[in-house]
Every structure is written in C-alpha cells, then in structure tokens.
Design a protein around this nucleic acid. Sequence first.
DNA 1: ATGATTTAGTAGCGTGCTGCGACTAATTCA
DNA 2: TGAATTAGTCGCAGCACGCTACTAAATCAT
Lengths: 228, 228
Amino acid sequence: MPARTASTRSSAPRVAPSIDVVILAPRERKLVVLLARGPAKSRERWQLPWRSLKPDETIDGEAVKLARKTLGTAPALVEQVAAFGDGRRHPSGAALSVAFLALIDADTSAGFKGDASWFAVNDLPPLPPRQRGMLEGVLTSLRARLDQGPIAFHLLPPTFTLTQLQEIYELLLGRRLHKASFRRSLHAAWLVEPTEEWRSEGRGRPAQLFRYAPKKRRGGRRGVRFGG
Amino acid sequence: MPARTASTRSSAPRVAPSIDVVILAPRERKLVVLLARGPAKSRERWQLPWRSLKPDETIDGEAVKLARKTLGTAPALVEQVAAFGDGRRHPSGAALSVAFLALIDADTSAGFKGDASWFAVNDLPPLPPRQRGMLEGVLTSLRARLDQGPIAFHLLPPTFTLTQLQEIYELLLGRRLHKASFRRSLHAAWLVEPTEEWRSEGRGRPAQLFRYAPKKRRGGRRGVRFGG
DNA sequence: ATGATTTAGTAGCGTGCTGCGACTAATTCA
DNA sequence: TGAATTAGTCGCAGCACGCTACTAAATCAT
C-alpha cells in the first residue's frame, strides 16, 4: 500500500538512498538525540542528520563520516540498525533510507558546539515521518540488544563508577535495577576491572572507578542479566 | 548536496537498490536455501532471488512479492534483516542491497516446483560476493533471535509434534538439546497448546500434535531457553 | 503371542542463578 | 559527634536448569 507522497506526480523520480544517523548520549538522567535544522521552508524544523549515498560509497563508511561531521568528534560506536523503505516521506525524497545508531558519552557530548541541538527522546519536536519511524526503530533495537553486547559502555567515559553504569542500564531499560544483583551479574560477565582510582562525588562514600575490560573467560561471555 | 537523477559518468553509474531474499526451509535434518539460476555468462551460476527496487515501491511489500513469485506460494514469514552496502559486487550493480529472511515449512517446500533449486546452507555453490555476505548475515541474525521470537514455528506446519519442534531448534542452534529440559522451557513459555490428534510415525509410541498458540500470561513471555 | 526395540513423555534430584532485604563502610553536613 | 548520604557486601529463599532414570505405547522379529 505505497502512500504516494511529497513532490511526486505520476511516477516518482529515482533518488539515491539516504543514510540517517541517530546520535544518542545520556544527559541528566535522560537519553538525548542530536537533531539538525531542516530547511526553513520545510514543515518540520528539525531532522535526523542525513546524507544521500553516492555510487561507490560504502554505507558504514559514510555513516561514520556523517556522524563525525555532525558531531565534530568521532562517536564511540556507529552501527547499522535497519533499512526503511515504507512509503513515508523523507526529506531527501529517497525511496530507501538506512538508519544508523551512534553513541557518545555524556562528557564528550557536553563539549559539543555546533549547529545541531540535543533533544530528550521522550520529548521530541515533529520529525519527517520516516525519520520518526527510524528513531523509534533504533531505540527499540538498542533496548533489545542491551544484553547481547557491551552497548552500554559506549555511553560512558573510559573510566566510570558502577553506579554510573547501572544508571545507564536503568535509562535504557526504563526501570530500576537492584544494586547487589546488578553487580553480581556484572562480575559474572567479566566485563569490567577496577582501577586504582576513587572518585568522591559530593556526599557519601567515594566510589571506585572501573574500566571496560572484557575477559574472554571460559564459557561463552554472558551479557549482563538484570536484577531488580 | 543530494545529486541528481539517473546515471553519473566518470564513476559508477547510479543503480537502484536491490531486494534480496533468503528463503529457508528444513529438509532432511538440514537447513536449505532456495537459489535461482543466474545468467549463463555470469561467473556464479546461482544467486539469491533478487529484484531492483523502483521508486514508490515499499521494500517489505516487494520482498513479499518476490518471495511469493519465486516460491509459487506465500512464505510463513518475511522479515527484513539488514542493508548491505559494502563495496562487494552484486549482480544488479546496485550500491545498496537489502536482505530479507523468508521461512516456509518442510511440507510446503516439498511441494515446490520451479526454476530454482534447494541447497543445504552448509554446502553452497559460489555466490556473488555480496550475496554470500547477505546469506551469512541472515543466518547469524536468525540464530541470535531464536529465543526472542517464535521464529522456529514458521519452519513447521500448523500442527507438529514436540520432537519436530525440538529438531528445528537443534537445526538452527547447531547442537543437541535435552528433551526434558526443552519441554519444561516450552511449557513455561506458554507458546504451544495440545490438539486432540496423535500421529504415529513408524515405530514407537505415537506423539501428540501441538499447535502454536502463544498465551500472554502474567509476566513477560519468555522465549524458549535451552536445556542441554 | 510375547518379548526386544523404538519412540514419546514424565518425575525428581542436585546445583547454581536470581531477587531481595539487611547489613557494613566511608564520606559530608549540621 | 551524630544524622544523612552514598558505596559496597552478605546470605537466604525460591526458582530455573541440566541430567538420569523412569513409565507408556507403538512396531518388529521369532
């Protein structure tokens, strides 16, 4: 049921596929996404950063370049999520768009200066319809694969406290986790190792800093399973 | 920044994205994939079924049509897996290809008459390089999502014995499972219900037939976790 | 016919993982 | 100096998992 859209008359012109990137960072207990300004005349003033794919270009390479150009710095992770070729409208007019996920940590994102702006994913401005679907698809996929790979670590700086790590998981899962169970799972997964440093964050006992250091110990590496 | 329409000159010409479908069925304890004949002059004589995407077409719709046309009947499941736009060669010359997974059960696949042929996924003829990658990507994704959704059921007829179901899981996972544990997990997941029928399959005690009937019981539906 | 063989399905035990409440430890604030 | 706050650990109770061993119902061989 292809819904005819946008600037088309009898038969749509052939337009190159687009690459769209969903750049995420944690920010004040919320997940935020980086949106770029659209053309002034367009209905939606904000858009996911995108570009058209030229022949001979690889999608992964171009996605990394696009993320770096938009962000001014290289993200910790860039990963393809899915292709979107429903009939919905895309700013490029492309019949097909490929969605990418990009993650950076809070510290790096705080240093961002550029034309784009951060928005909480729970409180977004109107987006072009296909991009709205792409964003939702990326978030769903992110949550589903949380326990498959070390995704959460890419939202943190190189060293972090276990409470910080737990807060990232809670942010992505949308629910509270039990501290003791979380740490036990983490320990069993052999994903982090302690550093010598401790950080005093205002009140309370200082926390030890850890770094991401997966050990391929005997038995398949298990993801972090959640207590809570 | 988005380039114009049809074809460029000096570098590669612009070619519409392709839709490629990996049609799988269980067959004599092996997983088989349906391959179509390529053009006689081409290096690889066999290819994944594919077609070029025209503007205004939706990828999911076209994937279903392609699968149905190739197969002569509608598959039990058609699902997008990923986009492939590495530099590797594709028969269409497209810069970008989208891979789809399609599943049908053994009985239906046995009735297949057509130009294409079934090959065991462990013993394949040479394929165009990008399609080789797409096939591997689809298989990897299939195995990874086995415990997330009811994928296995789409490789079986509407009613089946629990031994048949277990064999499908063993086929996809590539290892033997323990009967009692498998059934316990299945029961806990509330995914099947017994019918009144029993099937006598040669020797031994007859087996009860079950049907796929997921119950959204209290607590999130767990996938089948594997014993043994 | 009857016992061997084959396949289906269940019972129950030990171990380990999970969820949770309650505890100790180290710091800041009044 | 003691209340409050945050970090980190202990250990129990219950459930899930892996496995062996059992019962059930059919066919095959003699």
